[in-house]
């Protein structure tokens, strides 16, 4: 469960996130959408403890991220919006390093890495240096590393960018499966069709403010409106 209570974060004069409050419940996939520069990434970085909010609080699985960052991070899988990783390491070296940081025992990590690598078709590439990976492969290695410790809360910043259709399908399946097992998935995306089909609830952020939040049915103003039309309506308002 992720609880965001009135967080505000400014960069100089610009208020990137403005008094954001929302809950993401156990067992649901929450889609976070908004135009470029709306504050999605800032909000996500605050949720995972990479940024300190100017005010407000974030609790993940009941742990205050600012007060107990290490304990909170142990329960989070985070995928950033750009897969910048150590290019000189091999894929498996990077995943192992992350697994060490999360204290994942060997008997858990070996099958977990094998399963994720198989699912994302990365098994043969794990021994290659990351420098030689394509953008999509880097995204996949970041995903494997993020999910290796199998935490309750997944916080994914545009995780589908760069993935091939098969990997994208596999990841969406994993997200559904994770949420159905009583866990939390919070992700941002620009692909509204994906959000529409995958998410239990959606939050729309515009200029740092949450302008709408709820299930698709709750957001609909007309019976035939799509998430795209709802989104465009909210953004243009």
């Amino acid at each position: 469960m992720i609880e965001i209570v009135g967080i505000t974060k400014s960069y100089g004069d610009k208020r990137a996130v403005d008094n954001l409050t929302l809950d993401v419940r156990d067992g649901e996939i929450f889609g976070f959408i908004g135009p470029n520069g709306a504050g999605k990434t800032t909000a996500i970085k605050t949720i995972v403890g990479m940024l300190r909010p100017d005010s407000g609080a974030v609790r993940v699985n009941g742990v205050d991220v600012q007060a107990n960052p290490i304990e909170a991070k142990l329960g989070i899988a985070y995928v950033p919006d750009t897969p910048d990783v150590y290019e000189r390491l091999t894929g498996i070296q990077f995943v192992n390093f992350i697994a060490d940081a999360y204290r994942v025992p060997q008997d858990v990590r070996v099958p977990r890495i094998a399963q994720l690598a198989e699912m994302l078709e990365m098994t043969d590439a794990l021994g290659d240096v990351i420098e030689s990976y394509s953008h999509g492969m880097r995204q996949k290695i970041v995903l494997i590393a993020a999910l290796v410790h199998d935490p309750k809360a997944w916080v994914l910043d545009e995780p589908l960018v760069g993935l091939d259709p098969k990997a994208s399908f596999a990841l969406k399946g994993l997200m559904r499966q994770h949420a159905d097992s009583g866990n939390t998935v919070f992700f941002s995306t620009h692909i509204l069709e994906v959000a529409e089909r995958l998410c239990d609830r959606v939050g729309v952020i515009v200029q740092g403010r949450l302008v709408a939040c709820g299930t698709l049915d709750e957001l609909r103003t007309a019976a035939d409106s799509t998430l795209e039309s709802i989104f465009l309506d909210l953004v243009d308002r």
Binding site: T90, I92, Q93, V95, N96, A99, D100, V104, P105, Q106, R109, V110, I113, L126, G127, D128, V129, E131, S132
Partner: peptide, 12 residues
């Protein structure tokens, strides 16, 4: 592409 042995998943 430089291939490196995959290496066992050692815990540290």
């Amino acid at each position: 592409r430089s291939r490196v042995h995959r290496g066992a998943a050692e815990t540290r």
